[in-house]
Design a protein around this nucleic acid. Sequence first.
DNA 1: GCTGGACATGTCAATAGTGGAAGGTAGGGT
DNA 2: ACCCTACCTTCCACTATTGACATGTCCAGC
Lengths: 174, 174
Amino acid sequence: MTLRHAVLGLLATAPGSGYDLLKRFETAMSSVWTATQSQLYGELGKLESADLIEVSAEGPRGRKEYAITDAGRSELRKWLLEEKPPAARRNEMLLRVYFLGEVTPEEARGFLSRHGAFAKGLVDELAALEASVDWDDSDPSLYGRLALEWGKRYAAMERDWAKWAAETIRAVRG
Amino acid sequence: MTLRHAVLGLLATAPGSGYDLLKRFETAMSSVWTATQSQLYGELGKLESADLIEVSAEGPRGRKEYAITDAGRSELRKWLLEEKPPAARRNEMLLRVYFLGEVTPEEARGFLSRHGAFAKGLVDELAALEASVDWDDSDPSLYGRLALEWGKRYAAMERDWAKWAAETIRAVRG
DNA sequence: GCTGGACATGTCAATAGTGGAAGGTAGGGT
DNA sequence: ACCCTACCTTCCACTATTGACATGTCCAGC
């Protein structure tokens, strides 16, 4: 039921059409949640039936602009504050690490080096992004900034961990 | 197609029945990948049809023990070394952070404190787990250890980030 | 006036994942 | 002998997610 809340959250910030929301999923939200067009339009229909959103305006080309309702806003608040986020339960990278015993130590170190290089690139990318954004103190940018900081710390953690892991393999296995 | 490789990886370590694998998904693998029983038995059937695994023994209660084939091992290697892991694209916790502007700053700080406390608990838990395990230098324990270290660093990162984020909100919003 | 690209939605088939019901066997402990 | 628990598999209905196809409209620039 998370896509539902992602849509509610986006519409709580500003009303928009399915097309608008899709753009927002592809850009601002892309590192946090994704949705395909078919999923999105389907979910908009369900949310409207449940009266959590409503059509607030109609425009050219059949455009339907949706806005969140009071019931929707209350559902969003409930999700934010009352439901505990389930711990992430899937990590494909780590799954591979578990099975690295199946390849040679050299290959395992190669895998970790590549991953470390990727994380390093991400750190630089996010630092550049941060530098390029004009941060004011408005709410949306505050919380976006917290999320960006999370990304930077995550990427730095993975970069350092991968380096450490490759060194550990070398120390233990040669 | 990741469950497929998770199963291949487990069977590469040791042969086992669907029931055995399910236990391993619920324990050792639970923080990295999950599978329900229905998904697992279905996947075993598909893997057998594709000749990536085979029934290596039959036991009481209709037990079928599966073992990885050479083709399966080669598929596993290919997945480990040739396919690049897609970047994680969903994080429900961060999604909530994006929408924290919908609640009051106090509530937002409460959310972050709770998350920080959870991460702190995880750090302690993982440290205790590490202390309790008798690490030898065998392959499976080496790579499990790398994964555990990842978990420790991840939890510590989230703990520190949550603290920083709550302080930042207080500084900016009071 | 034409045309290409952006805008906009709808629908379908397929795979992945969840949750639960149903049915049965083997073996250790009392 | 009995029973309880662990062992073990199959099947089904539902939701979530992906990717592709289909269809059409508006508008800016030439």
